[in-house]
Simulated scan of single mutants.
Amino acid sequence: MVMEHIENNGYREIDSVAPRDRYARGWHCLGLSAPYKDGKPHSVRAFGTKLVVFAGEDGELSVLDAYCRHMGGDLSQGEVKGNSIACPFHDWRWGGNGRCTEIPYARRVPPIAKTRSWNILDQDGMLFVYNDPEGNSPPAEIAPPRIPGVASDDWTDWKGFRQIVVQTNCRELIDNNVDMAHFFYVHGSFPTHFRNVFEGHVAAQYMNGLAREDIRPVAAGGAPQLIGNTSKAAYYGPAFMIDELTYHYDQFDMESVLINCHYPIDLDSFVLIYGVLVKHSPLLDRRASEHMAESMGRYITKGFEQDIEIWKNKTRIENPLLCDGDGPVYQLRRWYEQFCVDVADISADMVERFEFELDMTTPVETWREVVSEGLALRSAEASR
């Protein structure tokens, strides 16, 4: 625990209790599914252990515990044989359902020869794995929603799909769902509307924003100038966010879908995964539309890198000191808690509907002054 207080002077104690020794129950995206379908085993460190991901000759993906139940060989270093993964140590074969299918040097397979098989979902070009400390199967109603733009001629393919290891607990990422003010100071966006709605397994953020004129580059040669954006970003479960994001330019709008998701490596690190689909604009030809999508992918990458720099240097705070311009941090963490307890222990206040809309009057007035001062300074520097 990190503490920083002087009781006689009334300083507030910073409480950074270690994260709960448990991984969230729910669907977690392991990235695009196509790279896992190359007929080779793939090693993934997740949920404090190692997994092996492979596709059999039938093309079906499977996820198993990576360590062979026989003598501990690493299945991810083995070989795909038929629809099974063969251990490199003694060639025991394991099927996608976790059962041992063959031991070449034995007359029979022990009836108890079984390893853990993980529930998976291959959907919209992404591979999901379901984690549940209690070992229950995933309820149908919490499956990640489909993304209509995938495989549509009206939309691009996935752009900027990246995976980055972040050395902190994944709850630090979840807190961003209610953190309105950091968009101005960290990302150079100017929020003008901000609202949260939590209900059931969904936590949504609605935001309208303007691009900060004092720091945005001036478009040259008639290129489109970014004006702002409209966003509906929702976590569906503890680890998979879909952001329906429209960028407003001076000449047109660009509709996009941003995927922001993660899976924990252990309690102190996670893999951040993100990518974007962009709807082709009728005002642009396909080449120009693809170029805009790639630019948006780079822009989004820059935003996540800004967050990562903050996460690398901050401390975990269980009792943040909040003001009236902050979002519902404690309510969001209460919502997130439903995924970290047994199903029988989920309480009504974790899942019942909660709505909160920030009064943006003060921040908008304050930030307009900041932007005006920045523009005046930039104008003065340009005239020298």
Rank of each mutant, 00 (worst) to 15 (best):
M3W: 12
N8Y: 08
G10Y: 01
I14S: 07
S16L: 14
R22P: 02
Y23I: 11
A24I: 06
A24H: 09
R25S: 12
W27K: 02
C29T: 07
G31V: 13
L32G: 12
G39A: 08
P41C: 04
S43D: 06
S43C: 10
V44F: 03
R45C: 02
R45M: 01
V53I: 13
V53L: 07
A55S: 07
E57V: 15
G59R: 11
E60R: 14
V63Q: 07
L64P: 01
Y67S: 14
Q77A: 15
G78C: 06
E79T: 13
E79Y: 03
K81T: 09
P88S: 12
H90V: 07
R93M: 13
N97F: 09
N97D: 15
G98Y: 06
R99D: 09
T101I: 00
E102T: 03
V109C: 08
T115R: 12
W118R: 04
W118G: 02
L121M: 01
G125M: 13
L127V: 02
Y130K: 07
N131P: 08
N136R: 15
G149E: 07
V150C: 01
S152W: 08
D157W: 08
D157V: 14
F161W: 14
I164P: 06
V166S: 08
Q167T: 12
C170P: 00
C170L: 15
M180Y: 01
F184I: 04
F184C: 07
E199R: 10
G200A: 06
H201M: 09
V202C: 09
Y206E: 07
L210N: 11
R212K: 13
D214A: 10
A219Q: 11
T230P: 00
K232V: 13
A239W: 03
T246R: 05
H248K: 14
F252P: 01
F252N: 06
D253M: 04
E255N: 14
S256E: 09
I259H: 05
I265P: 00
D266W: 05
D266M: 09
S269V: 04
K279G: 07
P282K: 05
L283G: 00
A288M: 09
S289T: 00
H291L: 13
A293Y: 11
A293G: 11
E294S: 15
S295Q: 12
R298S: 13
Y299G: 10
K302A: 09
F304Q: 04
E305A: 00
Q306F: 04
E309Q: 14
E309H: 11
W311V: 01
T315N: 06
T315G: 05
E318N: 15
P320W: 03
L321E: 05
L321W: 05
D324S: 13
G325T: 02
D326R: 00
D326K: 00
P328Q: 03
Q331I: 05
R334L: 11
Q338H: 10
Q338D: 12
F339W: 12
F339K: 05
D342R: 14
V343E: 15
V343M: 10
A344T: 06
A344D: 12
D345T: 04
E352A: 15
E355P: 06
F356D: 00
P363W: 12
V364K: 15
E365H: 14
T366K: 12
E373I: 04
L375V: 08
R378T: 07
S379P: 00
